[in-house]
């Protein structure tokens, strides 16, 4: 049986060589669809938008000069106070949201890292917020946060707090959207850090115990350093998403009141699709992109993210 299979498969060495040499192309054939999609749907529009950013494109205004305007749009970006305000708001929103959800997630991971009745079910329930469509998250929180009818003010009223104005007052709007973001994405940080905690070896904790470290010392000297790679990855992913937050803020405050929650993605959407100032909008987009890139690269460098990823690979 095997003999006949061998004979029928026998080919001239030359043909076999040509065929096996073709294997060199196999990875590129496999990569081709991805590269095509990435370039056609991803890179090309990006380059196109770079081009638009040097023009005065504004389809709604036939009188405007639609052609090449050089660096004019970029010069305007630099002096656009509204934009830099949005950048600050985005920075504040991101920092508050990422830091609070990190702290909360670490505490929760430690809390749930023991076997008590019902913890498995509770962990599953806690995951749900990150699965709810962000638009729905915005809607339900906006409904709960309504000053007169909302259930939040009712609940706080029971314990004698409030009523709060939540998203509709200048003072509490940013805190409100941060709260919603923290509510939705802490579960994401939590499961990553929880998984990291579960995967830590026991022996360092045992030797810390024998060495006489207190719970607090163990936490800072053993748990945190060993969790660092996982924390770095969780923070990076959270950072990238927090900077782009749009949906919940769009639903809850639309950037208001008085622009206190006017993050960059809301501002960009307004410039591009309310005023159809596409040339200027594109320039804004590119500046935004470079800012984000800078933030991420700084974080990647400070945290040694690539080293962590490569170490994972080496194993």
């Amino acid at each position: 049986m095997a003999e006949s299979a061998i004979r029928s498969a026998t080919v001239h060495a030359g043909a076999a060589k040509a065929q096996r040499a073709g294997e060199k192309w196999a990875p590129w054939i496999l990569l081709a669809p991805t590269l095509v999609i990435m370039n056609v749907v991803g890179v090309y529009p990006l380059l196109h938008s770079l081009y638009i950013s040097f023009t005065g494109a504004k389809p709604t205004d036939p009188n405007a000069h639609q052609g090449w305007v050089g660096l004019k749009n970029y010069a305007e970006v630099v002096s656009d106070g509204q934009f830099w305000h949005a950048v600050l708001v985005t920075g504040g929103f991101t920092a508050l949201s990422v830091v609070s959800s990190l702290v909360l997630a670490v505490l929760m991971a430690i809390l749930f890292n023991r076997p008590l009745p019902g913890f498995v079910l509770m962990r599953s329930l806690i995951l749900i917020p990150m699965l709810v469509t962000p638009i729905a998250v915005g809607l339900i929180w906006r409904i709960m946060m309504m000053p007169e009818l909302g259930v939040l003010n009712y609940l706080f009223g029971i314990v004698g707090l409030g009523p709060f104005q939540w998203g509709s007052s200048r003072g509490s709007a940013l805190a409100s959207v941060v709260l919603v973001d923290v509510w939705q994405w802490t579960p994401f940080m939590f499961i990553i850090i929880f998984a990291g905690l579960k995967s830590l070896p026991r022996s360092p904790f045992e030797s810390a115990q024998i060495d006489g470290a207190s719970g607090w010392q163990t936490f800072w000297q053993v748990t945190v350093p060993m969790l660092k790679p996982v924390i770095v990855i969780a923070v990076l992913l959270r950072l990238i998403d927090a900077i782009r937050t749009y949906d919940t803020i769009y639903i809850i405050t639309r950037g208001g009141p008085d622009f206190v929650t006017d993050v960059v993605s809301i501002y960009l959407q307004r410039v591009n699709f309310r005023f159809f100032d596409l040339g200027y909008g594109s320039a804004l987009s590119w500046v935004t992109m470079l800012l984000i890139l800078a933030v991420v690269l700084i974080f990647v460098n400070l945290s040694g993210f690539l080293r962590i990823v490569n170490e994972k690979e080496a194993r």
Partner: peptide, 15 residues
Amino acid sequence: LSVRMLPPIVSVIPL
């Protein structure tokens, strides 16, 4: 990572 971090609003105009 950069595709992940692009604000979608950036490529929306050319698209």
